[in-house]
Design a protein around this nucleic acid. Structure first.
Length: 358
DNA sequence: AAGACGGGGCT
DNA sequence: AGCCCAGTCTT
């Protein structure tokens, strides 16, 4: 384009952004597992499933999970018929496990309706685990509705296109207004996915690759000379420390004791090694209180560490050979079944540490 | 409006 | 080691 885009009126500038974005998409779209081929009709089940897996998750991390889900449950009725434990296990390692509970609840609800997803944003919004973003994404991508999904990528792009200095949380209404005004009635799903691909590959946090961006000529952050300064950053939060102990009680055949966490709260419904509560002081001398059975516990030399959003955790691991039957609330996990048992990543680490020391 | 909720990727 | 991030639900 050789004309000066800064001279365009608002409507012409909007058309310019949409046209450049769709043109870029047609040549550069990422080939992701859940995407229908160009010209093919998307499957709402796959769109919904992918959008849930992508909440707070990168495409790279979500891809193997998506493959496993559709291989195991090809249609929403299959997922609805699965057990709660099977869905949690398929989700284990992805994080934000309330997604797994809501995913299963939503599948059951859709199956009851005959397997059809609603196509309107407002009705999608009422489904479990479907918030403002996901409802708009499904409406636009699966049903071609004019909707404006606004995820973290799109928030960042819009902050830069319009040079919004405020941190994302404070620029919320300005970003929503900009997104709503921009959404085209033609190919709204492609437009939204194009912006998300641009956000993931070009308009990245901290290190935007503006020379590669189809929107650099219409971007106020580029005009400012410091595109990476947008959006503004919120003040960093302090992260507290917590400590706890977990117990690797193993049998002669290699099986060990595990238990399932409560269905709500941290690491909901995932499988863990039995242990003490996690506190700022740690269990101290009372660490035996968390043991599933009485045994000759040996403290392993290395701890397991995990950083969560609000705190950093250090786990001490104790191991002992045991012969008793599994106590109430616990069950045996065989060494071959560790991968499918439904452990969160932090518990996988603890198990791996203990197995490596036996 | 603020807090809870995991894990991976980047510098 | 520290910072950033493909949201939803609860209170």
């Amino acid at each position: 384009m050789s004309f000066n885009v800064s001279l365009l009126g608002a409507e012409a500038k909007r058309n310019e952004i949409v046209a450049r974005t769709l043109n870029w998409w047609d040549r550069n779209r990422r080939d992701l597992a859940w995407r229908a081929a160009p010209g093919e009709t998307p499957d709402p089940y796959r769109v919904w499933l992918s959008e849930v897996l992508l909440q707070q998750t990168t495409a790279q991390a979500a891809t193997p999970y998506f493959q496993a889900f559709v291989a195991k449950w090809p249609a929403v009725e299959d997922l609805a018929a699965a057990s709660h434990e099977a869905v949690i296990s398929a989700f284990a390692g992805l994080g934000y496990y309330s997604r797994a509970r809501n995913l299963h609840a939503c599948a059951k609800e859709i199956a009851q309706r005959g397997g059809r997803f609603p196509s309107q944003e407002a009705e999608l919004r009422t489904l479990p685990g479907v918030g403002a973003y996901t409802a708009a994404a499904i409406a636009a991508i699966a049903f071609g509705r004019r909707a404006a999904p606004v995820d973290g990528n799109i928030k960042r792009i819009l902050s830069r296109l319009y040079a919004l200095k405020d941190p994302i949380t404070q620029a919320r209404s300005a970003i929503a207004a900009a997104a709503g005004a921009l959404a085209p009635s033609n190919r709204p799903g492609d437009f939204a996915q194009a912006l998300m691909d641009i956000g993931a590959t070009i308009c990245r946090p901290r290190t935007p690759d503006c020379p590669a961006c189809p929107l650099s000529e219409v971007c106020a952050a580029v005009w400012s000379g410091v595109p990476e300064a947008y959006p503004g950053r919120a003040a960093a939060k302090v992260r507290s420390l917590r400590k706890g102990a977990v117990f690797f009680a193993h049998r002669a055949d290699g099986a060990f004791l595990a238990r399932r966490r409560p269905p709500r709260g941290l690491l909901a419904s995932t499988v863990e090694l039995p242990g003490t509560p996690w506190t700022s002081k740690g269990p101290g001398g009372a660490w035996r209180d968390g043991a599933p059975v009485a045994a000759r516990w040996r403290k392993l030399p290395e701890t397991v560490e995990q950083v969560f959003t609000h705190f950093a955790l250090t786990l001490t691991v104790y191991a002992a050979a045991v012969k008793d039957a599994a106590p109430d609330g616990c069950f045996w996990v065989s060494p071959d079944g560790v991968g499918e048992a439904g452990f969160s990543n932090v518990m996988r680490k603890a198990v791996a540490r203990a197995v490596g020391r036996q």
